[in-house]
Write a protein that binds this DNA or RNA. Structure first.
Length: 229
DNA sequence: CCAGACGTTGTT
DNA sequence: GTCTGG
DNA sequence: CCAGACGTTGTT
DNA sequence: GTCTGG
C-alpha cells in the first residue's frame, strides 16, 4: 500500500488469530516502519499458530554483502506468480500480518492530511504476507516479510491506487494452509476488500513523524484538521 | 555463454 | 536462487 | 509514507 | 534533489 505505515499495536489480538496476549515490550509498534518488527502469524491454521516478530521488508536469500541490498515492503498480488522473487514464497511461505489498520495520505490544501483506515466493525485485519528466513549477521535466523498489495477499492481509490490484500476471515485458514499451493486459487484470496467493511477517518499530523508511536495516534478524539473522508 | 539485476510506491 | 540482457 | 540529512579533514 | 531512517 502506499501508506507504508501499518499499525499493529494491539496487545490483545482477535480471538480468530488464536494468539496469546502480547507482552507490551514485544509490541512497541503502532506506527510501523520498514525494519521495525511486527507480529506475524505463520504455520497451519489448524494447529496452534505461532506468533513471531518479523522485520517488515523482505530480505531475499540472495542478498549478499557488498551488493545493494533489496528489501521490498510490498508485493503486487497480480504478479506474484511471474516474479521469480515471489513465486516460490507464494507456494511455500505465506503469512498473515495482523493489524489494527493502516495510514494513507492525501494532498489537502498544500499539506498532507493523514487518514486512518481500519475495519468498520472494530475488529482486526489479517493482511496477506510472504516471508522468508535468512541467517542474520549474528548467525541467528532473521525472518522478514512483505505485504501483498492489490488494487484499491472505490472507497480508497481517491487516497491511493493500491491497498493491502486484506484477507476475509474465512480465507485466512486457506492462506496459511500448507496443503494449498495453486497460485490461481491463492490469488483469488487477494482481491480488494469490499468498501463497506472499511472505515476511513482523518487523524492528526502526529503520525507523520515516525518518532511518534503510540495509540494516541489513532485516538478517536484526535484533532482532525482538514476533515473529510 | 556470462554479468547483472532481482521489488514497490510515489511523483511529475 | 533465477531470470533478463547483451 | 514523511522527516531529516545530505561533506571532509583532523583530532581524540 | 535524493537518499536514509523510522
Amino acid at each position: 500500500m502506499c501508506g507504508r505505515y501499518v499499525i499493529a499495536g494491539v496487545h490483545e489480538l482477535s480471538e480468530r488469530f488464536q494468539l496469546r496476549t502480547i507482552p507490551a515490550e514485544l509490541f512497541p509498534t503502532w506506527n510501523a516502519a520498514p525494519t521495525q518488527r511486527l507480529p506475524v502469524v505463520v504455520e497451519d491454521a489448524a494447529t496452534e499458530r505461532a506468533l513471531r516478530m518479523m522485520q517488515w521488508g523482505l530480505l531475499p536469500r540472495w542478498n549478499r554483502p557488498g551488493s545493494r541490498p533489496i528489501a521490498p515492503i510490498n508485493a503486487r498480488a497480480e504478479t506474484l506468480e511471474e516474479k521469480p522473487m515471489f513465486r516460490g514464497l507464494l507456494r511455500r511461505s505465506r503469512c498473515i500480518v495482523p493489524v489494527n489498520g493502516f495510514y494513507e495520505w492525501r494532498q489537502g490544501g498544500g499539506r498532507k492530511q493523514p487518514y486512518y483506515i481500519a475495519p468498520a466493525d472494530g475488529d482486526i485485519w489479517g493482511l496477506a504476507g510472504l516471508y522468508d528466513e535468512i541467517e542474520g549477521p549474528d548467525g541467528e535466523p532473521l525472518a522478514s516479510y512483505t505485504i501483498v498489495t492489490t488494487a484499491a477499492n472505490p472507497l480508497l481509490a481517491p487516497l491511493h491506487e493500491r491497498m493491502p490484500a486484506i484477507l476475509r476471515p474465512d480465507d485466512e485458514e486457506a492462506w496459511l494452509s500448507r496443503d494449498v499451493d495453486d497460485p490461481r486459487q491463492l490469488e483469488l484470496l487477494l482481491r480488494p476488500a469490499p468498501a463497506d467493511e472499511i472505515a476511513v477517518r482523518p487523524v492528526g499530523p502526529a503520525v507523520n513523524s515516525a518518532r511518534n508511536n503510540g495509540p494516541e495516534l489513532i485516538a478517536a478524539d484526535e484533532p482532525a484538521d482538514g476533515a473529510d473522508g
